[in-house]
Design a binder for these strands. Structure first.
Lengths: 187, 187
DNA sequence: AGATTGATGTCACCTGGTGTCATCAACTAC
DNA sequence: GTAGTTGATGACACCAGGTGACATCAATCT
């Protein structure tokens, strides 16, 4: 006989997604989420540092994979190529999560508070990417710009991806964004 | 005899900057700011939509100037050139505000909550820039990418500018960032 | 059997932020 | 010049996000 139901964090996560979808993010209180999960507000904040984090906590694995890809890029790759190595594994990673990714995007899109959090996560991704590039021997300036560019490619591809219906289209959209970007800066 | 001291908003702004510099952003409460300004918390929120906005409210004029420059760019300018027109007037605009810009940057830099707000302001700048480009007849995709690139150039130049001592160096840093970016994407 | 651990509950508290009504100088209208 | 209107501020109650401190008690270790 266990004292508590298992997987408190998972229950909180599911309750949160349900409630956000049903009533919107703002109209949902943390106490409500906790109650639906059979827990208390205090416990919610033990699992998630703040209310928004319930939607962003899953990003850790993704970021790790991305940065590892940058580190593992071939030695002769240019700074930008190395930074873009991060985008390579991403497409498969998200293909099977397409449904929830779109759901999540729709919740975030309409809420400034959530868009702020998304932006700072992307900024963080750019920062750790730049750091990985520096460790490859790239100078700080180009490292930051390459990282920022790679993140922009990802962000642009992602935005187009969640607007349509093909789960496997992410890689194509990122490639497209990169091609457009190259064309623009060359002109 | 007037009922209240004049320039409530200015007094709140100054009190806020002073207290943020003295004790840090987090350690300063809105009630404290209001008290130093001889007003109440409620009045603070009548002048600023939230606590962070006291540091970001001034950005309106800057954004307007930027977007106007994009609109006024020569008709034969490429999308990226037009977007970059926004960066042109910026340098003089900020040269005389160098001191407060650096002070403000230092406060923002160390506070995640404030960095979030800064990022969303930059994102907004990118959005209205893209919109201005679309009105010039640029397609939506390239418009967004050009706008994002211009904002990256600005952001990068700005970051280097506040790290050194020459108030007039902003234009140079932005040009430098652009050149580096071109070199990276061409390679 | 007893000590320890660790996830959760309980409770009090702070702070950002808002809704609502009162106040009262300055201005307007007659 | 008296009466009404306006608009910035104050007063006050309230909500929700977030934290610190301590209690609880099944599971596990010794």
């Amino acid at each position: 006989m266990t004292r508590w139901q298992p997987d408190a964090q998972g229950r909180l996560l599911q309750a949160a997604i349900e409630l956000f979808s049903e009533q919107g993010y703002d109209a949902t209180t943390v106490a409500e989420i906790a109650e639906r999960a059979g827990l208390t507000k205090r416990t919610f904040f033990r699992h998630f540092s703040d209310k928004r984090e319930v939607l962003f906590g899953g990003g850790g694995a993704f970021e790790e994979m991305w940065v590892q890809a940058v580190r593992d890029a071939p030695a002769q790759a240019s700074p930008l190529e190395a930074a873009l190595a991060g985008t390579a594994g991403v497409a498969e990673f998200f293909a099977e999560r397409f449904g929830s990714a779109r759901l999540r995007s729709r919740i975030i899109e309409v809420n400034p508070e959530l868009r702020e959090r998304e932006l700072i996560k992307l900024q963080h991704l750019a920062e750790v990417t730049a750091q990985a590039l520096v460790q490859r021997g790239v100078a700080a300036g180009p490292a930051r710009l390459s990282a920022q560019t790679a993140v922009t490619v990802f962000q642009t591809g992602w935005a187009r991806w969640v607007l349509q219906d093909d789960p496997d289209a992410l890689a194509g959209f990122m490639a497209e964004a990169l091609a457009e970007l190259r064309a623009l800066t060359a002109a």
